[in-house]
């Protein structure tokens, strides 16, 4: 879907427009940084013009004054209610990078992903993003952003590497943690060439949040009654989603394009009508 790729590219550039930062490894410090972007974009990326919502959640959990961030959760809930994982499909730079990698002509893994792996991202959300930072703050320990520090490959790719390349002082501080993060990133980038958007399917805590709201989102993909159950939509779905209200659906719109009868359509959700799945 070429048009979506243009939107994804534009979104990635817009969220990382502080080009000067790439030159000298500095960070943008303007007022944009008090806002969150809806996708996963590390705010320590030299180009980042706004903050990462997942990073912000952990940072606020570490802050004794605030703890729970009403501001960030409110923003995420609002965004999710508008489009569910539409953000994943159109605006997330890291999702875009994985999709580009999938276009590399390497053999694709055909076996379906075990369901337990799909649920792992909820554990990542509950333990690394919310659990550990909050528990440490509550028990008076030194809280830290566990997801950012131990796992997030977007941070390594967008922040760690560019900053290390551009800022020689930071290079002096690299240690074993960086080796681990780099391995995680490289492993993921490789898998992304064989499997469609692996991070989004298995590990992304932000995707997990939006996934929960797929069934309620105002913008969604509807299956009309003249669907003939050919199953083309299911076969073409990179996320192996059962239907567009499935938590796995990233609203990329591929099924809309592929439906031979035009039964799949983008729509404003009317009332609470359940979505008919694409097969009889």
């Amino acid at each position: 879907m070429a048009k979506r790729a243009w939107i994804q590219a534009a979104a990635a550039l817009l969220q990382n427009g502080y080009l000067r930062g790439f030159g000298d490894g500095s960070l943008y410090r303007g007022p944009g940084k008090q806002f969150c972007v809806p996708g996963l974009n590390c705010y320590s990326c030299p180009g980042a013009l706004a903050a990462c919502p997942i990073g912000a959640l952990q940072a606020m959990a570490a802050n004794v004054r605030f703890g729970l961030s009403f501001y960030v959760y409110g923003f995420l809930l609002l965004t999710g209610l508008i489009g569910g994982r539409l953000v994943c499909g159109f605006l997330c730079p890291f999702g875009f990078i994985q999709e580009l990698l999938y276009r590399v002509p390497l053999g694709k893994w055909r076996r379906p992903l075990p369901p337990v792996l799909r649920r792992l991202k909820y554990a990542v959300l509950l333990v690394l993003v919310i659990g550990i930072p909050t528990a440490l703050t509550l028990t008076g320990g030194i809280s830290f952003p566990a997801f950012c520090q131990w796992l997030c490959p977007a941070g390594t790719l967008e922040a760690g590497i560019p900053v290390a390349l551009a800022n020689e002082r930071i290079r002096g501080a690299l240690g074993w943690l960086f080796v681990w993060k780099l391995s995680v990133l490289l492993g993921l980038l490789y898998v992304a060439m064989r499997l469609f958007r692996p991070f989004c399917r298995v590990l992304c805590p932000l995707g997990a949040i939006y996934a929960l709201l797929n069934r309620l989102s105002v913008v969604h993909i509807r299956t009309e009654s003249h669907c003939q159950g050919c199953g083309a939509c299911r076969r073409v779905c990179g996320m192996e989603a059962a239907d567009p209200d499935d938590p796995e659906c990233i609203r990329c719109g591929r099924c809309v394009t592929c439906c031979p009868t035009g039964a799949r359509r983008w729509a404003w959700r009317r009332g609470g009508a359940p979505v008919r799945s694409g097969e009889n």
């Binding site: 817009l14 000298d24 809806p38």
Partner: peptide, 21 residues
């Protein structure tokens, strides 16, 4: 959604303090 982002970025690039050696 894009316009919202654009607005934020435009507002952002106008004022950046610090970062200069």
């Amino acid at each position: 959604l894009l316009l919202t982002l654009l607005a934020g970025c435009a507002a952002g690039t106008v004022g950046n303090a610090g970062g200069s050696p």
